[in-house]
Design a protein around this nucleic acid. Sequence first.
DNA 1: GCTATTTAATACGAGGTGCAAATTAAATTC
DNA 2: GAATTTAATTTGCACCTCGTATTAAATAGC
Lengths: 399, 399
Amino acid sequence: MKTADPELMRAMNRLSVLDTIRRRGPISRVEISERTELSTTTVSAITGSLLDDGLILTRHEGDIRNEAVRGRPRVMLEVNPDAARVVGAKIAASRMVFVVTNFRGDVLSQLTLPIRIDRQPIAVIADLVEDGVRRCVVDAGLSLEDVDSVCLGLPGVIEHRTGHIRSSPIFREINIDFASEMSTRLSTPTIVESDAHAITLGHHWFGKARDLQDMVLISLEQTLGLGVLHGNRLFRGAGGLSHNLGDLVLGTGPQGIVRLSSQAGESAILGEQQADGRFAEAVRLGRGMTHVQALIQADDDRLIGAAVRAGEAVGLTIANIVTLFAPPRVILVGSSLALGEPFLNSLRDAYALAIPPSLKGVSELVFDDSTDDFWAQGAAAVALYELYESPWSTTGPAL
Amino acid sequence: MKTADPELMRAMNRLSVLDTIRRRGPISRVEISERTELSTTTVSAITGSLLDDGLILTRHEGDIRNEAVRGRPRVMLEVNPDAARVVGAKIAASRMVFVVTNFRGDVLSQLTLPIRIDRQPIAVIADLVEDGVRRCVVDAGLSLEDVDSVCLGLPGVIEHRTGHIRSSPIFREINIDFASEMSTRLSTPTIVESDAHAITLGHHWFGKARDLQDMVLISLEQTLGLGVLHGNRLFRGAGGLSHNLGDLVLGTGPQGIVRLSSQAGESAILGEQQADGRFAEAVRLGRGMTHVQALIQADDDRLIGAAVRAGEAVGLTIANIVTLFAPPRVILVGSSLALGEPFLNSLRDAYALAIPPSLKGVSELVFDDSTDDFWAQGAAAVALYELYESPWSTTGPAL
DNA sequence: GCTATTTAATACGAGGTGCAAATTAAATTC
DNA sequence: GAATTTAATTTGCACCTCGTATTAAATAGC
């Protein structure tokens, strides 16, 4: 068990203060003191040390309750954007998106590589990822030495703690130590994380869950992922495993087990149409879903049927997730949302039908159609989170 | 956010030490120091304060590595059994079981009331519970003043934090503030908890999960409950809600949503047979399942069919739970286990079929046929846990 | 333009906490 | 009975947070 010593205490309060500054934009010391319930003395000491370490900056304008207020004006504090830089990436089967962000999470540069890497050998994928990171860093006018860490978000079952990829649709192999592979290639600390977890943290930092401590996110892409935020922290399964929703069983059909992925995965929906080859190119370019929507609007009955079935399956699954976690909000993201109304309506209907009466109204469904940039930014947030959490310069004793 | 001050620090380490003493039986200070990674100085200080508060005792025998070992012998420390007494209860539809335990969790007295309280008015149930608690306390040779707290474990959706019963099969009403009702009746702090959570903690303290930090328990009784242990703590949903597995959706059938409870609940299995009235009395006595097993052994085809279907449904559900939580062990408890081999075999088969290949082998299934006493003891453990966790006498500054 | 007032932020001392080193305690070995 | 070995406590120190007193920096009033 983790032993509690003064150092831990300091680290906890430091994180608490730094996190408050990050979240509440420019904020004065008094307000920090109120929010964190730390004494002003302690807040002063901690912010002093954060200023020394260059993690935050002072700003003398911006006190909102200014004008006609007496007394010494508050000095506003904010995160120093230039305190660190990280790279976040979303690695998907048909494209890779990289962003470089500063310490505040602002995007400094963005790079999309619309390359199909599906089922390539590890070395090839690693080459492409390495290349993408390097180019994106250069685009930001930086060099890799300026980057503090890298976080790669990718689909599948990822073991965050060890950086192993247990299984992923973009790799033929299983159980790959991708984190150390990329760490040595880039000679920069590299984190591997589930893309769903990445965008979950992204929403908590920048998106539709900034106001919440608990939340569930469901990602509907090539694979179906789950992110659970519990008490302001990512809830990872025992052993730090990410979840793979597609493996969930919906029931048994005539030909055995029916998994969610067979009903609602990207390939399940598109696959039925593959025969006539209309989607080959679209899918290759990562625009499968966009294309689908165009077809749906043209009233392609078969596609509508697939979308409706997928929506039902997802709706039931969400109801089950809500039954287990009772989150105040469920955020849905991913390319499958582009299926449009037939999908969304059947999803909503199935959810409404399946949610147990006693839980009716505890969760709201929110749909988010952010672009891939946001996923990559979420990965950057994962990298930043670990920086924020780390004791940093370990300035040691406040001197 | 919880602010970290010296007091919290002390509380954390105190709990860590006390928990180590509880778990590792009689144990010396040096060993505590090794296990908790606290310095011997700190361990001495904390154990000193625990001794002052009468929560632990010294024992001078029992050093295993004795004989032929030089040096001053270690003084063994153990929890003081008489430091507190609690009452734990399992309240089910057809019976109530009470136990009084000491601070170590040893059962001092036990009382079973085989009364059907199903659908009685609150006041009647509260009367019966109060009576049961009082009689069990008297049986232990104690008076209610000697009891530090009471924990009632009952089925349904319980909001532990507020002590409200959101919904329960044994109450007609919903949203009952049962904790304060019973607290005032007994004039003793009373906790209300889901029976599944109670036996989950029971297994962590006394049963089949003593060695684990993470674990999932599934209770198969009148209702289907879930307990998740995560990092040595009970994982309660956002808002401290307990889970109701029966509300999970298995899929859609011809007549709409199919919930787990309609396949695997006690009444779902027995219900089909209700028509011929053979079970009326057995169920009333709470021996429905025992009776069923006798019939199954007599090859009642209809019952076997129901048991097999229930086993399948539960097996699939467990696979889904494992997909989400990836626990190293899943413990199954509850009266439905008495359905015997037809049920268990189909459960195992369905689980094996449904568990995703990437998670094969991460979880072991364990069946536990503990009696109701153990459930009540688990409820006692919940009560004890809160005592252990509380700062206690707040001896205040170690003087 | 000066002083009084008000609010923000910082010093200072007290009390609590854990740790390393030194000391005391209690056994075995020779 | 002295030396040795191991356990547990005492001592001294560095650190943390907090309450109170003090300093800093603005406005309000005359």
